[in-house]
Design a protein around this nucleic acid. Structure first.
Lengths: 225, 225
DNA sequence: TTCTTTTTTTGAACATGTTCAAAATTGAAA
DNA sequence: TTTCAATTTTGAACATGTTCAAAAAAAGAA
């Protein structure tokens, strides 16, 4: 890998990544071979490995790139809406739209849940990407007027990120026409979540929120609001 | 594969499977090679493939075997307890105990969420195993006195199975000492779930259970109680 | 320009999951 | 017992992700 990327090497890298995505779209991730990718890019196999650590790394590079591209649009969603519902709908629908052309590719990423695997969305290696993403949900919560017990509120951004990951996971493998099932899942669970949030302050529901707060504290540590 | 398994071929198959599990435990699933497995079983690589379709198939065979072994104990749990809480605790804790010695191996199974992948817990190919498993949760629900809106009750066994799958997934990758985090997750979420079940009939909570019922009906079809 | 160091590129070699044609073995029929 | 088909076993060959020593190209220093 270059220490100080020159425009030339940057271009080669881009060409190889682009070739990889082409081949992935043409053959599917599993069926695509590194040899074909290299040939498409007009380069030797070794060159592909000079710029990318592994075949999986292409997917990560794609994800990283897509996330950066999405930044302005995500930002717009957040500034142009106020309620948590509007913001969540905006964020999540935007992601679906953005990834839609490469939906099948995302499956290659989702395939690794193991936090020990570097490319897993839960690994230490992907922490920067993850935290950057969670920050958007933190902004979605801020000033939105959500009321929640203080034992849970600080964890809400992370929980929402997790919720969205679950949706994406379902979406990636959703074979219903136009992924209608995913949208149904989104719609109904969103409704349920918003209802639950509305009544979260009710003393009656304390037996529900107390263990939740204890659990979050134990798993994620003590986060202040 | 033999049409009518003779005792001899059955023994060879068992020897190879046992060798595979040995090597998996010694090296971990990913690091274990088919060549070493075959060598350990005192057989050529081809023989391993004569009895097992793939390296992954060993894990499935192990799971299948373990599930069968567990049968009587699971049955005992169900007959010897009555409340849903006791039964769920019994079932799930028994599973953890049974799989504990091969916890790392289970990761190889959990790695495939793709329902299109034959060995996925959600694939068509594993439907028999899955349904057999869900049947236990159906028994856990029956006569337990759980009250739930009729739009949801029929789906409860499936939902509980899903809950347990989630727990297992977390458990498989849980690096906390003695998997303490998993047990905490189990404890707290169980408490929350039981509380939610208790008040599920309250008219106040209809906005929570109505969309849930609609969603389940759309995703899983109309199931009668 | 010429020499030296760094970056980039190459492609053969390697490891490993999987396949398959051929050989060996088994079991039953004659 | 001999013969023949089915079952089982073998191990070389194959495909593909990955590595790496060597070659080529580029960048700097003289």
């Amino acid at each position: 890998m270059p220490r100080q990327p020159t425009p030339k090497s940057e271009a080669t890298r881009a060409r190889i990544l682009s070739a990889a995505l082409d081949v992935f779209r043409k053959r599917g991730f599993a069926e695509a071979t590194m040899r074909e990718i290299a040939a498409t890019a007009g380069v030797a196999v070794g060159a592909a490995y000079y710029y990318f650590d592994s075949k999986d790394a292409f997917v990560m590079a794609f994800y990283d790139h897509a996330q950066t591209e999405m930044f302005p649009a995500l930002d717009r969603v957040l500034t142009e809406s106020r309620t948590l519902e509007q913001r969540l709908r905006g964020l999540i629908e935007l992601k679906f739209q953005t990834f839609a052309p490469n939906r099948a590719l995302m499956a290659a990423l989702s395939a690794h849940i193991d936090p020990g695997y570097p490319l897993s969305p839960f690994s230490a290696a992907t922490a920067p990407i993850r935290e950057r993403d969670i920050a958007f949900f933190a902004r979605a919560v801020a000033d939105s007027g959500v009321r929640l017990p203080p034992s849970i509120l600080p964890y809400l951004p992370r929980l929402l990120w997790f919720y969205q990951m679950g949706l994406m996971l379902y979406w990636v493998y959703d074979r219903s026409p136009r992924q209608a099932n995913t949208h149904l899942l989104f719609e109904k669970t969103m409704r349920m979540m918003l209802f639950a949030l509305k009544f979260s302050g009710l003393p009656l529901l304390r037996p529900l929120f107390r263990p939740a707060g204890e659990l979050l504290k134990a798993l994620y540590g003590d986060i202040r609001a």
